[in-house]
Design a protein around this nucleic acid. Structure first.
Length: 560
DNA sequence: TTAGGGTTAG
């Protein structure tokens, strides 16, 4: 295939730099980098001196093709040609080429050697450092920036978000506002994501006000709206997420997918599937994420056949090849419903290498259905893929413990010790008065109101026991006495957080708890009972999903 | 015409 320009070009006897450049640009736009370089060589052989646009066209193509070797050759040409090294525009495109190819150090070197830099040079590098996870270098550059504009500030805000530092992101947003810098929808999306990471309702409502006040609410901007949906569902308010969804005039695949995923993680499987069916009737086509959402919904509701038919529909009706993540959902669906052999068969039939997530889903299913034999297969693969991830070892030890295979438990514990792996401490946090957040570790006695918390917890236990609650001792995976098991269970961080929440929030107010690990069976049972006797709604976000406890039952139908 | 953005489970 040749660009149209070729036939015209070939009729010119003495093409000049602009004609050559136009032809080169034609090739680069079509992704024909090698061909464009041949034209460039011909141009040089013909004694025609390139203009800056000639070189930037080539550099841009090297960036998008991720071809640093050719990019370096062009860099060499720039140096050889002398004058272009001082060209700000050429320098910026050169930096961009190195960054797109993943050569941050080379990009920095060009930056340092540039005779003059502008906001674009600085911001490109700040963003690159942020994406590489080096917020230290990003901040350092940002501090040195003589004039900071909206884009530079936004690069910092989103950089902190990308590195899971939501508090710093909000801090920079506040500084940005105090500096009198305007914000636009890109900044807002970053701030909204920061609030989603924090998962606190207080911030969620605050950022929504900020968006509305700047005239960029969900009605006006589809990006902001979609981000708000995701934020509200991550903050535990799927109803608010749905209100945002309903209020939006323009809806695209992100809008629908965020809403479907939101409904799925909150246990509203039926609504998630209904929304999917509504979506496919519109012009908005589902993508791979949308399918992750509906398949997750099926997995949380135990809908095997529906999941299987959606999985088949993906490729047949929508031309989306199932990825390893979609297989992961299917393994989860089969595993959670106890179809462990079928899950293993599906893994064996996969057209790609199973990921750690796949084996993790299988191992999780083995825990629910107490199947140490299949668990060993899953664990062996996991130990290969993620030798340093302690969670897998603990899960296997737990499965052995449940089967009372204490010798095997000991073996796994020794393995953990030999590898020098440290256990992740469990912690929970809860929104207290005025949205103030308090964090509790398991067995935490450091809170100034610990005595009151303990009393509240004991009172709760007494009332629950009168209601028939019996501690689920098999949730403790140490081979210790029953009494010790009871003591360990009662000090789980989410129970402490709940007691504190009951202590400091008003009657009728929902209690929101976030836990860094998965909620244990005993705490789940405990929360069910507590929601009944206290008349409070309890919302727990664990590392997997949301649990809404209300009047003695959980939205997950004890299926998680 | 070179810089910042939205959805992914377990």
């Amino acid at each position: 295939m040749q660009p149209y320009g070729v036939s015209v070009f070939s009729q010119v006897n003495y093409p000049n730099a602009f004609l050559y450049t136009a032809l080169i640009r034609g090739y680069t736009i079509d992704g024909l980098l090698k061909e464009s370089l041949l034209i460039y060589s011909a141009m040089r052989r013909g004694g025609v001196t390139p203009v800056s646009f000639t070189l930037t066209s080539l550099l841009k193509a090297c960036g998008s093709e991720v071809n640093v070797n050719l990019g370096r050759q062009i860099h060499g040409e720039i140096v050889k040609l002398g004058g272009f090294s001082a060209d700000l525009f050429v320098g910026n495109v050169l930096i961009d080429m190195y960054l797109k190819c993943g050569y941050l150090g080379c990009g920095r070197k060009v930056f340092d050697e540039m005779p003059a830099r502008d906001l674009i040079s600085w911001t490109s590098l700040i963003d690159a450092y942020a994406k590489a996870g080096d917020m230290g270098s990003a901040s350092e550059l940002f501090r040195g920036l003589p004039v900071k504009d909206m884009v530079a500030w936004t690069a910092m805000v989103t950089g902190f978000v990308q590195n899971a530092k939501p508090r710093e992101a909000l801090e920079y947003f506040e500084k940005m506002q105090s500096a009198g810098v305007q914000t636009d929808e890109v900044t807002l999306v970053g701030v909204i994501n920061a609030c989603a990471q924090l998962g606190a309702v207080k911030y969620a409502n605050w950022v929504r006000d900020v968006a509305e006040k700047s005239g960029l609410g969900p009605k006006n901007d589809v990006h902001v709206g979609s981000a708000l949906i995701d934020m509200y569902s991550k903050c535990g308010s799927v109803d608010d997420a749905y209100k945002v969804f309903k209020s939006m005039q323009e809806k695209n695949v992100y809008t629908y997918s965020s809403m479907i995923v939101g409904l799925a993680i909150h246990g509203h499987a039926g609504s998630a599937i209904e929304l999917f069916e509504e979506m496919v009737k519109t012009d908005v086509k589902p993508n791979e994420v949308t399918f992750i959402g509906v398949l997750t919904a099926c997995s949380h509701a135990g809908l095997v056949e529906q999941g299987q038919s959606l999985f088949e529909m993906m490729e047949k009706s929508y031309g989306i090849k199932p990825s390893v993540d979609h297989y992961n959902c299917m393994v989860d669906i089969l595993g959670r419903t106890g179809k462990l052999e079928q899950a293993v068969k599906l893994i064996e039939s996969m057209p790609m290498e199973p990921s750690a997530g796949i084996w993790g889903a299988l191992l999780g299913a083995c825990r629910i259905y107490s199947n140490p034999d299949i668990a060993e297969v899953a664990a062996r693969n996991l130990f290969n893929l993620e030798p340093e991830s302690i969670g897998n070892y603990i899960l296997l030890a737990n499965i052995y413990a449940k089967a009372e295979r204490w010798q095997d438990v000991l073996k796994v514990r020794k393995l953990i010790k030999k590898k020098g792996l440290k256990k992740n401490p469990a912690f929970s946090w809860v929104e207290g008065e005025k949205g103030v957040i308090h964090e509790f570790y398991a067995g935490d006695m450091t809170h100034p109101r610990f005595r009151e918390i303990k009393e509240m917890l004991q009172d709760l236990i007494n009332r629950l026991q009168m209601d028939g609650y019996e501690p689920n001792l098999s949730s403790v995976l140490y081979d210790v006495s029953e009494e010790e098991k009871r003591r360990i269970l009662m000090n789980h961080s989410e129970k402490l957080a709940l007691a504190y929440g009951l202590l400091v929030t008003e009657d009728g107010c929902a209690i929101r708890i976030v836990k860094n690990l998965r909620i244990c069976e005993d705490c789940h049972l405990f929360m069910c009972g507590a929601s009944k006797i206290s008349g409070r709604e309890i919302i727990v976000r664990d590392n997997m999903r949301f649990h809404h406890f209300h009047n003695g039952t959980c939205s997950c139908s004890n299926f998680w």
